[in-house]
């Protein structure tokens, strides 16, 4: 459905913006390595099913491989331009994010199996994985425009999934309570950023010619 596709496209665009931005500037300034490491953990735990060699669809499999690969690649290039990283604070204690997500995964899951717990863990972790990046953005005061576009596209992805879940509930009678709860939490985490983004990008672009 249209919401699902839009969400996936936003996700693709976000990672392309990120890699393009770091590659062209040859600098990872303002990019949180910790957020990227968390995303790597998110994708590893969510796509464990790849190991079972159960390929639901070509589309899903290719997208999963792309998200895994591109996240590892982004970590690689951020590390490559790592000198700048020491110049700003990326000292968010990610243990405080990972531990509660693990507890949440143990409490909320559909079956007490490794795959199901990992799946739930990945949903909760994804919801909060952007926090180190938002923290870096805030400590910098003024964020780079590309970084801001990257965060916006990433937030848009999960926001698009919410109408997708409503749509699937009515058309397929399927509802994943954990996905929805984590997805709503994620969109709330982004909501403050969305407001700042709206003021910064849309209002500024309207009054460009001085």
């Amino acid at each position: 459905n249209i919401f699902r596709i839009s969400g996936d496209v936003a996700h693709l665009v976000s990672i392309i913006i990120l890699i393009h931005s770091v590659e062209t500037k040859k600098s990872a300034k303002g990019i949180s390595l910790k957020t990227q490491l968390l995303y790597a953990l998110v994708f590893i735990t969510r796509y464990l099913s790849l190991l079972k060699l159960e390929f639901g669809s070509v589309y899903n499999t290719l997208m999963k491989l792309f998200f895994l690969g591109s996240t590892f690649y982004s970590i690689f290039i951020i590390k490559k331009y790592t000198r700048e990283i020491t110049q700003y604070v990326d000292d968010f204690k990610i243990g405080y994010l990972v531990a509660p997500c693990f507890v949440a995964a143990l409490v909320f899951n559909y079956k007490f199996t490794v795959i199901e717990i990992a799946w739930s863990f990945s949903l909760w972790l994804e919801a909060v994985a952007i926090l180190p990046q938002l923290f870096v953005l805030q400590s910098q005061g003024q964020g780079d425009l590309l970084t801001v576009h990257y965060i916006f596209a990433l937030g848009l992805y999960r926001a698009f999934y919410i109408p997708n879940w409503v749509y699937r509930y009515f058309t397929e009678e399927r509802l994943d309570i954990i996905s929805v709860a984590a997805g709503v939490l994620q969109t709330l985490v982004y909501s403050d950023f969305f407001y700042v983004y709206y003021n910064k990008v849309f209002k500024n672009s309207l009054k460009l010619p001085a």
């Binding site: 509930y169 399927r174 994943d176």
Partner: peptide, 10 residues
């Protein structure tokens, strides 16, 4: 009945 995981999503 409605609570089903959506492992077909990304």
């Amino acid at each position: 009945k409605l609570v089903k995981n959506l492992h077909d999503e990304l």
